[in-house]
Simulated scan of single mutants.
Amino acid sequence: MGTRSRLLLTCCLAGLLTLGMTASVHAHDANAATQQGYASFYHDKFQGRTTASGVPFDQNQLTAAHRQLPFGTEVVVQRPDTGQEVTVVINDRGPFIKGRIIDLSKRAARKLGLIDTGVVPVVLTRIN
């Protein structure tokens, strides 16, 4: 790769990072320390249903669904636009809608101010 090509690639990557386009890169990497994407929350109809981990879903607990993180993983979910954050434990799989990286219990969604908007951009940080 020539110098011009490397410079162009570097500029393109820097531009993507500046625009916050890293979400699609990190959202699918369960080994990344942080991930960016969108959060949503469970509908009331899931209350009491069995989660993928085998425990009943309780919207009053601080839990969440993630496609790949191991069950029991603690994650800090932060809204970059407001600074609000909540710590949740992964106990289910999902969400299965493109662009969303985590589905939160209603209690966790309230702590993030997510109830009225339904979907918000978030940053996930693994604790354990």
Rank of each mutant, 00 (worst) to 15 (best):
Y38N: 07
A39T: 10
A39L: 09
S40H: 00
F41M: 12
Y42R: 10
H43G: 10
D44F: 12
D44K: 12
K45F: 09
F46C: 09
F46R: 11
F46N: 06
R49W: 13
T50Q: 13
T51R: 14
T51Q: 03
T51G: 12
S53A: 10
S53R: 06
G54V: 06
G54A: 04
N60D: 14
Q61R: 14
A64H: 01
A65G: 04
Q68Y: 15
P70G: 08
P70V: 11
P70N: 07
P70H: 09
P70S: 05
F71L: 08
V75I: 15
V76E: 10
V77P: 00
V77D: 00
R79T: 06
D81F: 11
T82V: 15
T82I: 14
G83V: 15
Q84P: 10
E85S: 09
T87Q: 08
V88Y: 01
V88A: 05
V89W: 08
V89P: 00
I90R: 00
N91L: 13
D92Q: 05
R93E: 04
R93I: 14
G94D: 00
G94I: 00
F96R: 08
F96N: 04
F96E: 00
F96G: 01
G99T: 12
G99I: 12
R100Q: 05
I102F: 06
D103Q: 03
S105W: 02
S105N: 06
R107Q: 09
A108M: 12
R110W: 02
K111P: 02
L112T: 04
L112M: 14
G113F: 09
D116N: 12
T117H: 11
T117N: 09
G118E: 07
V119H: 03
V122F: 00
V122C: 02
